[in-house]
Simulated assay, not measured.
Amino acid sequence: MTSDHGSPGSASEHGAEPHGGALSSKLNWLRAGVLGANDGIVSVAGLVVGVAAATTDRGPILTAGLAGLAAGAVSMALGEYVSVSTQRDTERALLAKERVELATIPDAELDELAALYEAKGLSPATARTVAEELTAHDAFAAHAEVELGIDPDELTDPWQAAGASAVSFTVGAILPMLAILLPPATARIPVTFVAVLVALAITGSLSARLGGADRPRAIVRVVIGGALAMAVTYGIGQLLGVAGV
Results as ranks from 00 to 15, higher is better:
residue 5 H to A: 13
residue 6 G to W: 07
residue 7 S to I: 00
residue 8 P to R: 05
residue 8 P to W: 03
residue 9 G to R: 05
residue 11 A to D: 04
residue 12 S to K: 01
residue 15 G to L: 11
residue 15 G to I: 05
residue 16 A to E: 09
residue 16 A to Y: 02
residue 18 P to L: 01
residue 18 P to G: 04
residue 19 H to M: 14
residue 20 G to D: 13
residue 20 G to M: 05
residue 22 A to G: 02
residue 22 A to R: 15
residue 23 L to C: 01
residue 23 L to R: 15
residue 25 S to W: 02
residue 26 K to W: 15
residue 32 A to L: 04
residue 32 A to I: 01
residue 32 A to Y: 09
residue 33 G to K: 03
residue 33 G to N: 10
residue 35 L to Q: 10
residue 40 G to Q: 07
residue 40 G to K: 08
residue 40 G to I: 12
residue 40 G to E: 09
residue 41 I to W: 06
residue 41 I to Y: 06
residue 41 I to G: 01
residue 44 V to A: 03
residue 46 G to R: 08
residue 46 G to C: 01
residue 47 L to E: 03
residue 48 V to H: 06
residue 49 V to R: 02
residue 50 G to Y: 10
residue 50 G to Q: 09
residue 51 V to A: 04
residue 51 V to T: 11
residue 51 V to K: 02
residue 53 A to G: 12
residue 53 A to S: 14
residue 54 A to H: 05
residue 55 T to N: 07
residue 57 D to P: 10
residue 58 R to D: 11
residue 59 G to D: 08
residue 61 I to N: 11
residue 62 L to S: 05
residue 64 A to R: 05
residue 65 G to Y: 09
residue 65 G to M: 09
residue 66 L to Q: 05
residue 66 L to F: 15
residue 68 G to L: 10
residue 68 G to V: 09
residue 69 L to R: 06
residue 69 L to E: 05
residue 70 A to V: 15
residue 76 M to P: 01
residue 77 A to F: 04
residue 77 A to T: 03
residue 77 A to D: 05
residue 78 L to C: 12
residue 78 L to D: 00
residue 79 G to P: 08
residue 79 G to K: 09
residue 81 Y to M: 07
residue 81 Y to H: 12
residue 83 S to D: 04
residue 83 S to A: 15
residue 84 V to H: 08
residue 84 V to Q: 08
residue 85 S to H: 05
residue 89 D to N: 13
residue 94 L to R: 11
residue 95 L to A: 05
residue 96 A to F: 03
residue 97 K to S: 14
residue 97 K to Q: 14
residue 100 V to K: 06
residue 101 E to G: 00
residue 101 E to K: 12
residue 102 L to T: 09
residue 103 A to L: 12
residue 104 T to P: 00
residue 104 T to W: 04
residue 105 I to S: 13
residue 105 I to K: 12
residue 106 P to N: 06
residue 107 D to K: 11
residue 108 A to N: 08
residue 109 E to N: 06
residue 112 E to N: 12
residue 112 E to L: 15
residue 116 L to K: 02
residue 116 L to V: 06
residue 118 E to P: 02
residue 119 A to C: 00
residue 123 S to H: 07
residue 123 S to V: 04
residue 125 A to V: 14
residue 128 R to P: 00
residue 128 R to C: 03
residue 132 E to V: 15
residue 132 E to P: 00
residue 135 T to Y: 11
residue 136 A to E: 15
residue 137 H to W: 11
residue 138 D to Y: 09
